[in-house]
Computed example of a mutant assay.
Amino acid sequence: MRKKIVAGNWKMNTTLAEGQALASEIIHMVEDETDRSVQVVLIPPFTHLYPINKLIGSLRKKHIYLGAQDCSAHEKGAYTGEVSAAMLQSVGVDYVIVGHSERREYHAENHALLAQKARRVLEHGMQLIFCCGEPLSVREAGNYLEYVEAQLRESLFELEADLWEHIVIAYEPVWAIGTGKTATPEQAQEVHAYIRSLIAERYDKALAHEVSILYGGSCKPENAAELFAQADIDGGLIGGASLKSRSFVDIIKACQ
């Protein structure tokens, strides 16, 4: 069975003290209130990774994991401000996001660069969360499936089949992030099913069936259960709602 995953992307929010408090609240609530059938990934800013890994402690590798929001395409060297995959692995990171819509938009990250980043993450033994999704103009034009297909083909489909056991896809309709809009469960399911069909076409059906595909478009406690009930939605990449422990844990419980 493919993994159920709820990952909280804190983006550029929380001081270290705030982040440690939030992580501690989430960890204790997950332990007290959930059946631990869902993998929970905390994805704080880079500055918080090492101390939050210490908070996760022995729960790491069981059902609570540590994630990073990005990594460099370079292995090491004179790249001021960059953080390498090796550095992330050395502080206990389990999952790394690559290709988030904000990185694509604000930092002009293209398919080729994201392919390099994905390769670095996998080479260092971490799990890859690869984001894909369309902006409003593409959704309204009706060619959103082709748009998502290009993102996957250009960045991931040169990878060897055996690496896919370490890859999670996150579909994030850009028009539904921070706008108050949410894709309907049917709209989300359509794209998730299409993504799975593309993986099956490129590799095989058995491999595609095992890949977890997360929804990443303004998922909240109010709509989480309906979204997660769809056949090809295996959890969520949560933004704003992951900054409130109660909301985040309620989403995790909905995924159970």
Results as ranks from 00 to 15, higher is better:
His209Met: 01
Ala141Lys: 08
Leu198Thr: 09
Asn143Phe: 09
Ala23Pro: 05
Arg246Val: 15
Gly178Ile: 05
Arg202Gln: 15
Gly67Asp: 01
Gly133Ala: 05
Glu31Val: 12
Pro221Ile: 09
Thr15Met: 02
Ala78Ile: 11
Asn223Thr: 10
Val121Glu: 11
Leu88Phe: 11
Val41Cys: 10
Ala86Arg: 07
Ala85Asn: 10
Lys181Asn: 11
Leu122Asn: 10
Gly19Thr: 07
His209Val: 00
Gln20Met: 14
Val98Ala: 14
Pro51Lys: 06
Trp175Lys: 11
Arg139Val: 11
Ile52Ala: 01
Tyr203Ile: 06
Cys219Glu: 09
Val83Glu: 03
Gly217Ala: 09
Leu88Pro: 12
Ser212Arg: 09
Phe46Arg: 02
Ala86Lys: 11
Ser72Gly: 13
Gly239Lys: 07
Val138Lys: 06
Arg120Glu: 15
Tyr106Ser: 10
Lys76Arg: 06
Asp32Cys: 00
Thr34Gln: 07
Asp35Ile: 04
Val41Ser: 12
Met126Lys: 07
Val38Gly: 04
Leu237Ser: 01
Glu154Cys: 13
Val40Arg: 02
Gln230His: 00
Glu123Ile: 09
Glu186Met: 13
Asp234Pro: 03
Ile97Val: 15
Val6Asp: 00
Ala254Glu: 10
Phe46Asp: 07
Gln116Asp: 13
Lys11Val: 06
Gln187Cys: 01
Glu31Cys: 12
Tyr203Glu: 08
Gly236Arg: 05
Ser37Ile: 04
Gly57His: 08
Ala229Gly: 15
Tyr144Cys: 07
